[in-house]
Nucleic acid binder design. Structure first.
Lengths: 219, 219, 219, 219
DNA sequence: CATGAATGAGGCTTCATTCAT
DNA sequence: TATGAATGAAGCCTCATTCAT
């Protein structure tokens, strides 16, 4: 939670700062991200950052929450009931994600890099926590589908939940692996992660669904 | 590639150094691993390290190669032809891996932590390279299976290869996520990653195969 | 000397500020006392402090004078003539001090910590000055007693005066040393230094008098 | 405990460093003493200090131990049995102290300033500990004298012990108070605390003994 | 009278690497 | 071959004070 002062400053300046640090954390793991470098680039005093935030972690957590909140605006309204099956719902989440990516590219980059960012020893605790809650959410979805009789019930739902979570990560990672997207580069231009690549992402999602569907669906 | 000097020193000392740094890199990302700390623990001169290796990266790469080579001794002899189907072969790889883990626990830990280790910006290039070759290997396997008519052919083999690679990572990560294994702790005792957990790992592998098999197999 | 502005503000607010800084200076040496921390706790603007006071030292001196003035209200009326001998007078000073401590606990804490507070290099000058006047007062008393033929005259009055001053400090310090009082703790509750320990303090004073009396009294 | 490296460097350089920091800590409380300033003056790299010592505290404790050890060389051989009464013994301690002061002026200054130095919040723990052990030593002396029937037995020995400790502090403080000595100044010239003032110190000691003797002695 | 954002120097500490011995 | 002292940049963070509003 930033200090009040942060919310009192000029909106434009606030955005400048936010932007600069989103970028930094989108490029480097927490422990390697450098406040000093960013303020130098921003041309503001290092002390100022500590007027706004308790410390580096506070700053990071603020960006995390902000990014999460914004993403929720896009993804939060998607509900399972509105879709004929889980996979349609799953795809819808990605489509919403693309909208978010397009309209808040830096927040998107920040979240894109989150897993890597959390590998820093300093972040170990937070990492476990976030993983836990993310996986849990997927587990819940799986359980619901199993109850509906739509997913198989011969494999423990936690393994299936974890796998589903992993699918998400894989998709993103494969896009990068195949050099379809190039985050490091697009960050610098404040361009969306998936700029001009929406279709290719959705194709990849389709592929994954094709692959995973028979593994999850009953029969 | 270490300097000659490294191979001229006492074998025992060489092993001591190797061990200490395997441990360090198994615990921390590259950029946060500290040469200073390790030499202090070893009680040798910091300068010595620079007699043996060009720099930190050189040292790391040496350990990487060594670990890989040793692992190959276990895994390299496993051949697809010896097994009735891909999944039996896949399981056999894990069983060999466990043997490696048991007999070279620190190398195993080093490789276990490799993915996290490579997230450092310094390592970006290397990361891509290694990923490339790993995934490629899986792709080749997939292609072979497709040619044999055993895997489905309606999804691009590279996606399937990548997914297969991902399955491996997921298994390992889920074992840690469920606190079945505790790498940080077992490193300190130089114990294998999967000490007393071999059975549980193989069960997890079975689960994953159960899940993934229908996604890959033809029909 | 504070600026006019300080006396123009709401009495209540003035008291709040006074209180908070008395506390801070009662807990830490001058150079380590932090204006930043106090204003944060107070929830007022940091700039305000500089509207009221020239700088940190000015603020400190104000509190010092205020505390001294208040204490004088208690101690000032005690006169040597009212007591049969010096030691009865000496005890009376302590009893008045206890009253002050009870009714103005924070000012009392501030003065209690004063010696430690003045150890900061910044304060060196002030320290000497205050010491000077304090010791001088004791010297005067000693001289009077000598003139009356009640104190021995074979030791220089300034040594005796200094020693008397020292006795005072020692009593206070020994109370803390023996953990009878716990200033750091009682400050937080705005409790008197000697809360519930009045009797024990006076016993200690008696002990010291017993000890010192033969050293000072003629014969 | 400094690191080995510190004892490996050039004796002369070690002395230079030691000297510079003794000076710094003799002038300022721990929290205000600045490593940065000292190394700048020394013209050595800041990092070097951290090759020699764990941290600031480690450095301080080393100087403390060294100073104490050296002083013990002077004072340690003085034994109560060699003197007809306690006060002769007490004086002898001061005479030995003066020898120490003359031959190791900076260590003497360091110890002279110790009490003030330990007022820093960081040092609170250490302060209490040292006070405890110092006072205890005096208490033991007092008890012995009481057992011998030489000191009065109607006042608790801990009060008497504490008072005795206080006498020591007072003597030193009064010398400074009366401007007979000027530590801040003589530090800069690496001159003994009591340079050319030995006689005056011993006179002061005599005065104090005269004063305190009747307070402690039986009858 | 109040605000509080901005400053920038200064604090301690860590690190990989160099180089003279 | 081995040593380990020296380096100095970089890291995060704190602080009293100023000044425009």
């Amino acid at each position: 939670m930033p200090k009040e002062t942060f919310f009192n400053i000029n909106t434009e300046k606030r955005k400048l700062i936010t932007t600069a640090f989103l970028r930094e954390f989108a490029l480097k793991p927490f422990d390697e991200a450098s406040i000093s470098e960013v303020v130098k680039r921003l041309g503001i005093a290092k002390g100022s950052i500590y007027q706004y935030f308790e410390d580096k972690l506070d700053l990071f957590l603020y960006l995390l929450k902000e990014s999460g909140d914004i993403k929720k605006n896009y993804v939060g309204s998607i509900e399972r009931e509105s879709y004929p099956n889980f996979w349609a719902f799953f795809k819808a989440l990605y489509e919403a994600g693309l909208q978010f990516d397009k309209e808040s590219p830096l927040h998107s980059h920040f979240l894109f890099n989150l897993i890597k960012n959390l590998q820093s020893p300093t972040m170990e605790h937070l990492y476990k926590e976030m993983l836990q809650s993310t996986v849990l959410a997927f587990e819940e979805m799986v359980k619901t589908e199993i109850e509906k009789g739509l997913f198989r019930n011969d494999i423990s739902p936690d393994t299936m939940g974890f796998m589903l979570y992993r699918v998400g990560v894989s998709i993103q990672e494969q896009m990068e692996f195949k050099s379809i997207i190039n985050p490091k580069e697009s960050i610098l231009n404040s361009e969306p992660v998936y700029k001009d690549k929406n279709e290719q992402l959705m194709n990849m999602v389709d592929d994954y669904i094709l692959l995973v569907k028979p593994a999850f669906d009953k029969n």
